[in-house]
Nucleic acid binder design. Structure first.
Lengths: 217, 217
DNA sequence: TCGATTTGAGGTAATAATTCCTAGAAATGT
DNA sequence: ACATTTCTAGGAATTATTACCTCAAATCGA
C-alpha cells in the first residue's frame, strides 16, 4: 500500500486556545486561574476575549503562552501535545517523492532541502510507547537488513499483507519475515532473503506477531 | 529504572526567534522573505524589531507564528523541533540484539518487552534538524526498499563505507546506492538491486551525497 | 445559610506588536 | 559595471493584545 504523505494542517486559532484550556485543566486551574498564576491579567484568557467585538480572532502572544507554560511547569512539547487533535504528534520532516526529487531547485548546494514542493511526514513511532528495537546480527536477512541495522518494532500497530514483521513461535523461535497472506488458520510468510523458501505457519504456532515500522541503516 | 522528572526549562525569547530563523533558512528564505511569504510586513521578523528601543524583549504573536508555519508548509511540531537547544532529547526505546531476543523472559505474552537485558536506542533523527524524507516510487530498489517506503536522509551525518546513501550528480541525477569504496578521486557505488551492476563515479561528478539513516516499512 | 472568593462577561485605558515608510547595504541579474 | 531586487535598520503611525475596572453568577468554606 502506498503511504499517504500527511498533509500539514495549519495551526488554528481554536487549537491554540484549546491547548491553553487543556493546559489549565491539567494543572487543576480555570483559564482565569492559569492567567493569574502566569502573572497575567486574569481575564487575558477569557473566552469572551478570544474573539474581538468585530468578530476577528484574537491570538495570544508567544510571550503569554511562554508564561502560561512556566506557570504550570510545562514544556513547549507538552503544549504541542495538548494541541493534539489525534492527527498530530511526533516529529515531522520535509518529504518529497523520489521522482520529483530529481527536478532542479529542491536542494541547495550542500544537499539540504530548500525551495517549494516539500510535504511533511511524521516520524511515526513517537506515539507508540510500546515500541522497541532489535539489532540485527548476522547476514541471514540480507539484503533487506544487514548486520548492525536496528529495526524498530511497534507491537500495537495493526498488520497488513506486505508488512515486514517479527514473530515468535510457540516453540520460542524468533523470525523476521514478510507477511504474504494471512487467513484465519494460517500465516504465509515470505523470506527476506530471496534464496530462502517461504514458510507457512499454523496460526496456533504463533505466540505473537508485531510489525516492523522503521529500520536504521 | 525510575523515570526522573525532567527539569522544564522555560521557553525563551531567543528560542522562539531562533526557531523562526531556522524555519526561514530551511525554506531557503531570509527572515524578511519568510515574513513576506506569510503575508506579514517584511520587517516583522527583523532582528532590529526583536528588542524594543527601551531594551524590552518583543515576542511574536502566535498568529504570526501560525502564518509563518503555513507559509513554509510546516507543522507546529517542526517549529518545536527547530527550537532545539540540544538539551531536548528524543524518544528512546528499549533495544536488544536479535540473537538474545530469542531467549526466554524478554517478552510478555503479548509481545511487549519485559524483564532485564534491554538497552536503549534513540529514535530517528530527533537531533537532526536538517533531516528530510523521500518516498520511494517504483520497484527498482527492491528488495531493500519497496514502493511506498519512506527513507529518512541526514545530510549532516558523516558517511562511511557500507552506508546507504542518496546522491546527486552534477548532471542532476538522483541515485540511491550503497557506498562501497571512496577514494580521493572516485566513489564506488553498489546497486541496491543485486541484478544491477555497480557504478563508479568521479568525485567531481557528485554534487552532494547524504546518508540514509532510517527507512519506514 | 451566608460571607468570601473565584470566575467570566463586557467595557475602557494602556501597552505592545505590526504595519507603513525611508534609506543604505547586500545580493542578484544582465 | 550597471541596474534591479532583496534585505535589514530605524522611526512614526496604526492596530492588536493586554491590563485595569466593574458587575453578576458560580463556587467554596464555615
Amino acid at each position: 500500500m502506498v503511504k499517504q504523505p500527511k498533509a500539514v494542517r495549519p495551526l488554528t486559532h481554536g487549537q491554540v486556545w484549546a491547548a491553553l484550556d487543556r493546559l489549565a485543566e491539567r494543572a487543576g486551574l480555570s483559564p482565569s486561574g492559569l492567567a493569574k498564576r502566569a502573572g497575567l491579567d486574569p481575564t487575558t484568557f477569557n473566552k469572551s476575549k478570544r474573539i474581538t467585538g468585530d468578530g476577528r480572532e484574537r491570538w495570544p502572544s508567544t510571550e503569554s503562552v511562554s508564561k502560561a507554560l512556566a506557570a504550570t511547569n510545562a514544556s513547549i512539547e507538552t503544549f504541542v501535545a495538548l494541541i493534539g487533535d489525534g492527527g498530530r504528534t511526533g516529529q515531522a520532516v520535509p518529504m518529497i517523492g523520489f521522482e520529483q526529487a530529481g527536478t532542479a531547485g529542491l536542494f541547495d548546494d550542500s544537499g539540504f532541502p530548500s525551495g517549494k514542493g516539500w510535504d511533511e511526514v511524521a516520524l511515526p513511532t513517537i506515539h507508540d510507547e510500546h515500541a522497541y528495537a532489535l539489532e540485527i546480527e548476522g547476514d541471514q536477512m540480507k539484503p533487506a537488513y544487514r548486520e548492525g541495522d536496528i529495526i524498530v518494532i511497534s507491537p500495537g500497530t495493526p498488520i497488513r499483507r506486505g508488512d515486514r514483521v517479527v514473530l515468535r513461535t510457540a516453540g520460542g523461535e524468533m523470525l523476521v519475515k514478510e507477511l504474504k497472506r494471512r487467513s484465519a488458520r494460517t500465516l504465509e510468510l515470505g523470506s527476506l532473503n530471496p534464496e530462502l523458501a517461504d514458510r507457512i505457519l499454523d496460526a496456533e504456532e504463533v505466540a505473537w506477531i508485531a510489525r516492523i515500522v522503521w529500520v536504521s541503516q
